[in-house]
Design a protein around this nucleic acid. Sequence first.
DNA 1: CCAAAAGCGTAATGTTCGTTACGGTTGCCC
DNA 2: GGGCAACCGTAACGAACATTACGCTTTTGG
Lengths: 198, 198
Amino acid sequence: MRQENRSIRQQQIEAAAYAVLEAKGYGGTSMQSIAKQARASNETLYKWYGDKQGLFQALVTRNAAEVKGHLEAKLETDHDALSILGSLGPKLLDLLTGDRAVALNRAAAADPTGELGATISASGREAVSPLLKQVLLRARSEGRLAFDDPEEAMGLYLDLLIGDLQIRRVIGRQPQPTRSFRESRAARAVRHLQDILT
Amino acid sequence: MRQENRSIRQQQIEAAAYAVLEAKGYGGTSMQSIAKQARASNETLYKWYGDKQGLFQALVTRNAAEVKGHLEAKLETDHDALSILGSLGPKLLDLLTGDRAVALNRAAAADPTGELGATISASGREAVSPLLKQVLLRARSEGRLAFDDPEEAMGLYLDLLIGDLQIRRVIGRQPQPTRSFRESRAARAVRHLQDILT
DNA sequence: CCAAAAGCGTAATGTTCGTTACGGTTGCCC
DNA sequence: GGGCAACCGTAACGAACATTACGCTTTTGG
């Protein structure tokens, strides 16, 4: 299979994995159901991903790369730091509470080894972190925020932005936030960040 | 079996369930492993709890009742509302990020039906909510906080207190917070709540 | 155009699990 | 103290699953 086709096929398989995962939960997602959904064979799944863990690790790392890409695109904006935060926030919220992220977090919660969770965290928050710190530092140098520790300021921002939304999503008690909800919540986070860090 | 003995036996069985759950994760927790750990028989487990879901539902509701009890005890304190918040916060954080709560949240995340999550949320946050609102309203009447919507103020407090700690715990990326960490985080939440709601 | 490799559909294998069943034992009630 | 219900330990049963195996077709590289 040519490299191009294979890449397409992988995307199809991973899309199928998400489809089953979102429909049946991690417990109800078997390799055979993914294969059937993707019209692929078990053999291919195992040859390409090694085992079930490997397939989900692949989902996680690819998803994290996409998140990072989206956020970096937002960073290219020319506006001042605070308005970057204003447009970064809804996007980040979208990526963290979307169906894919929720499905992956559920998988990580169900994973007895904890490796999926480690991968999510390492490639997720720890990939977003430098970008976010960069924006906060820019806001400080523009005189819009005052803080000593960027790490702490970032934690505060993330607490205000995300709060317990994600855990409520993961245990199935919170529907996916609408666009307007995400935007008002992100605006609230920036507003309160200014209240606190002046 | 006398009622008294039976109650003791139930506690033993549920303790065994937590032990296996915390050690092996939800996926690795079978009814038979719980029975063996508790030196009970499968028959008893099924007679008492109906099925696996029933057992975990029982864990969730009992845990929620204990949480509520702990918090109500804190409420009896005579101090002003803000210092009640100061002692309520660490306790709540402890209860939400402790091993038991984490294990139950993982189980809820893995549960395909979503019923466990619904039970956790209904008996958890929605049981804590009235108590917390009561404290916040008292703080307002004492002139220490200013807000219109108690629901919104509570959401803000919980975001500041819990943030994304719980989800990070659940995916295994965050160790259980120490006492001093919980206390300083709860203090931070109160401090910033005052920064925002003045 | 042809061999070799890759992929598909299906089935086999070995294990684990939820749930049920059963004979032996224990403790309770009268 | 005797009968009875509950409980224990163990095993049995059917289903589902991860993983492997195997013919068959398609694609690829030369």
